[in-house]
Nucleic acid binder design. Sequence first.
RNA 1: CGGAGUGUAGCUCAGCCUGGUAGAGCACCGUCUUCGGGAGGCGGGGGUCGGUGGUUCGAAUCCACUCACUCCGACCA
Length: 436
Amino acid sequence: MRLSDYFLPTLKENPSEAQIVSHRLMLRAGMVRQSSAGIYSWLPMGLRVLRKVEGIVRDEMDAAGCQEILMPAIQPAELWQESGRYEDYGKEMLRITDRHERAMLFGPTHEEVVTDIFRSSVRSYRDLPKNLYQIQWKFRDEVRPRFGVMRGREFFMKDNYSFDLDYAGALRSYNRMFVAYLRTFARLGLTPIPMQADSGAIGGDLSHEFIVLAETGESAVYCDRAWLETDPLELEIDYDADLQPIVDRWTQLYAATDDKHDPATCKVAPDRLFEGRGIEVGHIFYFGTKYSASMGAVVRDENGKDTAVEMGSYGIGVSRLVGAIIEASHDDAGIVWPEAVAPFRVGMINLRSGDEACDRACEALYGALAQADVAVLYDDRDERAGVKFAEMDLIGLPWQIVVGPRGVKTGSVELKERGSGEREELSSEAVLARLT
RNA sequence: CGGAGUGUAGCUCAGCCUGGUAGAGCACCGUCUUCGGGAGGCGGGGGUCGGUGGUUCGAAUCCACUCACUCCGACCA
């Protein structure tokens, strides 16, 4: 992509409404624009990242045996009246009336809809287990949206729902999600820490929230240092096998947020205790028959008896993750994208657009990289070098290629790694070899 | 929902206290010089000062109401 063609409205200064670093950088790097409180438009650069995150989440869900569906954003109130949550959910639910004066709502979550789908379609225990997911926009009319996309009212979420015959089956589903979540966040370049959680309004008795470390995160985190030394990706996972030992290994390590942490009773030795900050990006719940019982989602078991299915629900804040990744990975100059989610892998700066030798070197390299399927953003604009450097650092692409008159004379270009800041003078061929 | 702020050019902000014909920097357009880390000169365009009402000869400025946004707290992916 040529930057001269790209819609990338960057800002030199911090917009006054943005207080936290990810919000500032997302606005400055031309990723999003606010529409109203907690509601954002995603511009090309932001959307590319959102899609990358979505893709990794989808990939891990599929690997864990879940099947993607897409439910309506607008739901009928009757379903929520059945489950009993229509009143309970309160003002956070955006309620809508259609032209026939029928009560509708913009879905804040989809337990009711998915349970309705399940009960109307599944009759036998032989059809279990099932685990259905969707990645879709949700709306929760938060009293106080803030922190940009980190706590918006409209947000992009992956939510899935497991259906099992009994508790043992539900636990297997829960464990699959537990492991899949750790893998997902690790693949996004984050350090996830699962914490035992209250199951809150969703109900049930088994729940973990997943917090990713970021110095600017809103919750304080206390955990065993062993968390930081464990890589969820190093294990080969067979989702059909018994995952309990893996989950046990993870859950026996101490981890707590500040409201649960008590220095007096904490058993971790002080030198093994990590104190940091983090952002909640996922939450998993087992809630048994809370919805299946109230909404009549039953299957015939092997004795010919109707039995309410055991359910769990699992959520990942996809749009929040974009902010969380920035919180976890940035410096004074701007964003530092992990390769897995970078909107483009490479940014190429032509320091002297219009100079024949520079243009020729850039075009050749640009063509070769495109040929090799490397996503490149080529800054071919007639701008000063300083502007190009500053903007390239701001948008945080993992690799920068700098082509200037000085190097072109000797047949070399500069390759800079955004994260470390390390630069090397190389030939175009060597750069190409390095990036492909 | 309780508390606290802020709304003036695309962005960051000054002017408001003490009423008297709307300002700066950046951005944008033209032009010249410059050209390896957000350049400089000259010229130019752009604002019903969030909205409504009031006080006044006169309101960005004072008063009332209202809307929007932000921050702190309780809640949440």
